[in-house]
Amino acid sequence: MAKTALKAGARFKSTVCDTQVMVVKAPAGEFELRCGGADMVGATAPAAAGGTLDPALSGETLIGKRYVNADESLELLCTKGGKGTLSLDGVALEIKQAKQLPSSD
């Protein structure tokens, strides 16, 4: 499986559903970022040939939600929702609990 460096600001899309994400923060190094069991690709990459969504990994992504790993060293913003479950190196990502942001709007 392909390992990718995850840089803040980079955008990825699922190859098996509509999910798109943007990296908010990420640890250094290379990781397997997947959605619905299939590797995610760069957001502007040409549409990949139809992979299939793993039914066991169809936990859905929701637009606007932030997804994190256990120690929250990785944070992804879902910019488009889809059917697949996001995972990093085989471990499913969780929705980050909303916290008070320093908003002035």
């Binding site: 943007m22 606007g64 939600k65 909303a98 942001l101 320093p102 908003s103 709007d105």
Partner: peptide, 12 residues
């Protein structure tokens, strides 16, 4: 983009 994502919750 960092400012918005860092200070506003989507669809708040």
């Amino acid at each position: 983009m960092s400012y918005i994502v860092g200070t506003v919750e989507f669809a708040a």
